[in-house]
Computed example of a mutant assay.
Amino acid sequence: MKTTKRARIVNLSSSAHRIGEIDLDNINLKHGAYSPLKAYAQSKLCNVLFTKELAKRVPGSNINVYALNPGLINTGLDRYVWSPVPTSLKPYLYLSPKMGSQTTLYCAIDETLDNDNCRRVEHMVSNAKNDTTARLLWELSADLVNLEKELRI
């Protein structure tokens, strides 16, 4: 990616990141800590923090990094994470998968983004702004996948 003229990394998050909490000592939510909603919210907070840390690790490069919330999309996730929404209400509450993918596609391919005109969220929850947690999560992730030290950005 560093050798291309311009590159983008787009990570999908969710507004659920707002309720996410990260326990770096129990990242896999073992020993009774797991619930579907807790795991989902934590994973989306991790996506925001990963993006934040990655952006700090590629400054001045040709790589732009984005985290986005595509909105509520009718993917069926509700049946696993929270109480299922009645089918009759879904068209009023959710975007179709086709419409829900538009934000992701925009971030991935629209050339005007190279001018950094994405809408920025200025009022992020404190969990999503924690530089220390972002760095520690990055290091933990690299350790968990046994990433060699010389390959770590």
Score class of each variant (00 low, 15 high):
residue 1 M to Q: 01
residue 1 M to G: 00
residue 2 K to Q: 05
residue 4 T to V: 14
residue 4 T to L: 02
residue 5 K to M: 11
residue 8 R to F: 01
residue 9 I to K: 13
residue 10 V to N: 02
residue 10 V to W: 00
residue 12 L to D: 02
residue 13 S to V: 01
residue 14 S to M: 08
residue 14 S to T: 06
residue 18 R to K: 15
residue 19 I to Q: 14
residue 21 E to N: 09
residue 22 I to H: 07
residue 22 I to G: 13
residue 24 L to F: 14
residue 25 D to Q: 15
residue 28 N to H: 15
residue 29 L to N: 14
residue 29 L to F: 08
residue 30 K to R: 13
residue 33 A to R: 15
residue 33 A to V: 09
residue 34 Y to E: 15
residue 35 S to D: 11
residue 39 A to D: 13
residue 41 A to R: 08
residue 41 A to F: 07
residue 42 Q to R: 07
residue 42 Q to M: 06
residue 43 S to M: 10
residue 46 C to P: 02
residue 47 N to C: 11
residue 47 N to I: 04
residue 48 V to F: 15
residue 48 V to A: 09
residue 49 L to S: 10
residue 50 F to E: 02
residue 52 K to N: 08
residue 52 K to W: 01
residue 52 K to S: 13
residue 53 E to H: 08
residue 57 R to Q: 12
residue 57 R to N: 06
residue 58 V to M: 02
residue 60 G to S: 11
residue 60 G to I: 06
residue 63 I to E: 09
residue 63 I to M: 14
residue 66 Y to Q: 03
residue 68 L to E: 00
residue 69 N to P: 04
residue 71 G to A: 02
residue 71 G to S: 00
residue 73 I to C: 03
residue 73 I to A: 00
residue 76 G to V: 10
residue 77 L to P: 05
residue 77 L to K: 05
residue 77 L to S: 04
residue 78 D to K: 00
residue 85 V to T: 11
residue 86 P to T: 13
residue 89 L to S: 08
residue 90 K to R: 14
residue 91 P to M: 03
residue 93 L to N: 08
residue 95 L to G: 01
residue 96 S to N: 12
residue 97 P to N: 14
residue 98 K to A: 13
residue 98 K to M: 08
residue 98 K to H: 08
residue 100 G to I: 04
residue 105 L to S: 09
residue 105 L to G: 06
residue 106 Y to T: 06
residue 107 C to E: 01
residue 109 I to N: 05
residue 109 I to L: 14
residue 115 N to R: 13
residue 118 C to P: 00
residue 119 R to V: 12
residue 120 R to L: 11
residue 120 R to C: 10
residue 121 V to R: 15
residue 121 V to G: 07
residue 121 V to E: 04
residue 122 E to C: 05
residue 122 E to S: 13
residue 124 M to F: 07
residue 128 A to V: 06
residue 128 A to F: 10
residue 129 K to S: 11
residue 130 N to H: 09
residue 131 D to T: 10
residue 132 T to H: 09
residue 133 T to H: 01
residue 135 R to T: 08
residue 136 L to P: 01
residue 140 L to I: 03
residue 141 S to C: 09
residue 141 S to R: 14
residue 143 D to M: 10
residue 143 D to H: 08
residue 144 L to G: 02
residue 144 L to K: 12
residue 145 V to K: 13
residue 146 N to T: 12
residue 149 K to M: 05
residue 150 E to R: 03
residue 152 R to P: 05
